[in-house]
């Protein structure tokens, strides 16, 4: 089957039906391997066992950004090619991305309690993820406000793209603002100092989370296509009803 055939919603549905069991299996396998690696991973010499939170915090942060990227690509598909499948992909990605963003915030603040002594610090990274979460909620609210699906898709696509332009600016501004108010950050993950015994479980977990995202996204896209069918059929039923 050529890739172009997937553009047809019915073909896409049968493709998802065929692929989804395999994706689910691969996700479960990746999580089994990843969680075993996490279990075996040594404690950090500074943070102790709390470093284990990182194995879910960092992948969710990655998926929070990945989700917006998926939505932006889909938004281009909506605006440039007016493709209904792109509408479906954008709409299905929003709640999943928001869920991972929320998970990133929760684990970040649970990590912060032992490290900083408080649940919430207006740290540059946490704050920008928080703003990203607000933007996800805004897009979902916009989707839920406009009744006509194809108009909702186009309007949400513009907001998504404006957001994609703005996210780097927000990230940079928040970092600037943070250096003004809080000179030193306690949490440091970046840099070349991360040891392989931590890095490998982290990468496996990131792969498992990404597989989970793809699986859920396909399943949610299938739901959205079915939902549109139900909507069309209900409209036709209403039209055919006597007395109309």
């Amino acid at each position: 089957m050529a890739l172009i055939d997937l553009a047809n919603p019915s073909r896409f549905l049968s493709f998802v039906d065929r692929v989804l069991p395999w994706l689910t299996g691969a996700t479960a396998l990746a999580f089994a391997v990843g969680l075993n690696q996490v279990y075996l991973a040594p404690d950090d010499y500074q943070q102790g066992a709390t470093v284990k939170i990182m194995f879910i915090h960092v992948p969710s942060a990655w998926l929070a950004m990945f989700g917006w990227t998926v939505m932006s690509v889909a938004a281009l598909g909506t605006l440039v090619w007016r493709h209904p499948l792109a509408d479906v992909a954008a709409k299905a990605a929003a709640p999943i991305g928001a869920a991972f963003t929320l998970l990133c915030l929760i684990t970040g603040s649970l990590w912060g309690r032992p490290m900083w002594g408080t649940y919430w610090v207006w740290d540059a990274r946490l704050t920008s993820v928080f703003v990203l979460f607000l933007m996800y909620l805004g897009v979902i609210a916009l989707w839920r406000t406009i009744e006509d699906p194809s108009r909702a898709a186009r309007v949400a696509a513009i907001l998504t793209l404006v957001g994609a332009i703005n996210i780097p600016i927000i990230k940079y501004s928040v970092e600037f603002w943070n250096t003004l108010h809080q000179p030193a950050s306690v949490m440091r993950l970046d840099g070349p100092t991360i040891h392989a015994s931590i890095l490998i479980p982290l990468l496996v977990m990131a792969a498992a989370f990404t597989l989970l995202f793809v699986t859920l996204h396909f399943a949610a896209m299938r739901n959205e296509i079915l939902r549109r069918r139900v909507r069309t059929m209900q409209l036709m039923q209403a039209q055919a009803a006597p007395g109309s």
């Binding site: 404690d43 102790g48 066992a49 709390t50 284990k52 939170i53 929760i106 309690r113 032992p114």
Partner: peptide
Amino acid sequence: NLGPHAAFILLSYGAA
């Protein structure tokens, strides 16, 4: 052994 902050680690995995 999850150390002194076991509750937070378990809570994060629970939240996930």
